[in-house]
């Protein structure tokens, strides 16, 4: 039986137990790093840097974790703030992520596997799926970062709108707007592919 997140958090707070924190890192590193890759246009180095900073900040502030929300939501909140802060600095240096999305032609993206529901997983190679996840990240990169975050948390992580509101620290109405506009924007980006105009 595995120890609960709260028990591990208590050990970190009480005993400064690095092993307990290492277990928390082990539990959440994959989904956090994957999410950050999706949110950074599949920039693995940047995503891992942001994830590392997120865990370090989480460790420093873990005493302030109240336990009313899920630990993962709390982590995502820190990660989102890290990402916003990073891109604010990058914007000042004119290194916008938007260039990632704009540089990628939509015709180069491949979402075939998403619609080939008859395909069994064994028939499609791991490399094929890897490419699919990268293409999805590149398609998302064309959206503003708040839309990207709201859409990813809603459609991929299946968070409720209230959870997203708490994570992004924005009103519930704004979350609804971001999701609606994000879906429209993403559909428009994929419209050429959907209508079969691109090969």
């Amino acid at each position: 039986m595995s120890i609960s997140d709260q028990a591990l958090i208590d050990r970190v707070i009480k005993d400064d137990n690095h092993l307990a924190f290492a277990e928390l890192v082990k539990r959440y590193q994959s989904q956090l790093r994957y999410s950050l890759r999706q949110l950074t246009g599949w920039n693995e180095a940047l995503a891992d840097d942001l994830a590392q900073e997120t865990f370090i900040k989480a460790y420093r502030a873990i005493a302030s974790f109240e336990g009313s929300a899920k630990f993962s939501s709390w982590l995502y909140r820190i990660a989102y703030n890290q990402m916003v802060s990073h891109f604010r600095v990058a914007r000042n240096r004119e290194l916008s992520l938007d260039s990632v999305g704009n540089d990628t032609a939509l015709s180069d993206l491949n979402f075939e596997s998403a619609f080939d529901l008859s395909d069994s997983d064994t028939q499609v190679s791991a490399e094929h799926y890897q490419q699919f996840h990268q293409d999805l990240a590149k398609a998302m990169a064309g959206l503003p970062q708040n839309q990207r975050m709201a859409l990813h948390m809603h459609l991929h992580r299946e968070c409720t709108q209230q959870e997203i509101s708490d994570i992004m620290n924005i009103p519930l109405g704004t979350v609804k707007t971001l999701i609606t506009r994000g879906k429209i924007s993403l559909r428009e980006r994929l419209a050429d592919w959907q209508t079969g105009e691109t090969p």
Binding site: Q29, R33, A114, D121, Y129, H133, L136, L155, K183, L190
Partner: peptide, 22 residues
Amino acid sequence: PLDTIFARARSTEPYVVAGEFS
């Protein structure tokens, strides 16, 4: 199509190996 794409993304999400990261 977005639901389909994200459903496939969820079901095929790779496990990112911890390696040196942790």
